[in-house]
């Protein structure tokens, strides 16, 4: 059982990446935005793993695993900032974060 052809993986991960990118641009809550960034990173992961299977090499899978670790640490930092903002009673809406602008 070989599973679907490679182009389906490419199309699926392209769709996932676009969903993530749209989420970052359209949503207002920083939490959902972080989630959307995760979707973008995982779209790339899916692509890496699919290609690694296509070429019969392992390095793509190793790459994907290290990306997961990196993505997790990025989320930790992001969530830390969001918690700190919540404690300071900052509105958690990126459209209202406009102390810095111009």
């Amino acid at each position: 059982m070989r599973g679907p052809d490679i182009q389906w993986y490419v199309i699926l991960s392209a769709i996932l990446f676009s969903v993530g990118a749209l989420g970052v641009m359209l949503r207002r809550s920083p939490l959902i935005i972080l989630l959307s960034v995760e979707i973008m990173l995982n779209a790339a992961n899916l692509l890496l793993i699919a290609f690694s299977r296509l070429h019969g090499r392992e390095d793509g899978q190793i790459f994907a695993i290290s990306v997961m670790a990196v993505a997790a640490s990025e989320v930790v930092v992001g969530l830390g900032m969001i918690v700190a903002m919540g404690r300071r009673h900052v509105d958690l809406d990126v459209d209202k974060l406009r102390t810095l602008r111009g």
Partner: peptide
């Protein structure tokens, strides 16, 4: 904090873009 969050979000999008591009090149 605001600067940090903005930098993180935009920076992460940049990294994800780089990663997706890398995956395509690898493919």
């Amino acid at each position: 904090l605001e600067a940090g969050l903005k930098y993180l979000i935009v920076g992460a999008v940049g990294s994800a873009t780089l990663l997706f591009g890398s995956a395509l090149v690898y493919g």
